[in-house]
Amino acid sequence: MNCYLIDDDKVFHLISHKMLQRSGIEVAVSNFFDGEEALASLKKSIEQQEVIPQIILLDIRMPKMDGFTFLDEYAKLPEEVTNHIKIFLLTSSIDKNDIERAKNHPALKGFFNKPLSFDAIKTIIGQD
């Protein structure tokens, strides 16, 4: 399984990576520190028909391009590609606006608060 971790905090890259590993899933994780970087990579993979991720765990507050902007850009990508991607918000935000906005975003499959828990991973996998 291929997974994008998009977060500006490298500690969370570590935590999420470890948690995914400990949950016993075979997973190849690509780390990105902002939305722009991740979007560029994703677009490149699509263009060059390389492997695209099945799962994206996305933070909201990031430099350069935040999570919601990334989602808007993501929504512009071809549907035949995005249909195969499950995208989840993984954030430390407990802001009600963020939660509402995430719930209403059509591209999103779910919303989790950091840190990533095994319960959350179960949901992510279950949906896969």
Binding site: D9, V11, F12, L14, I15, M19, N113, K114, P115
Partner: peptide
């Protein structure tokens, strides 16, 4: 939350 995650 990073601390919480690390502790886990």
């Amino acid at each position: 939350m990073a601390m919480k995650g690390l502790m886990s």
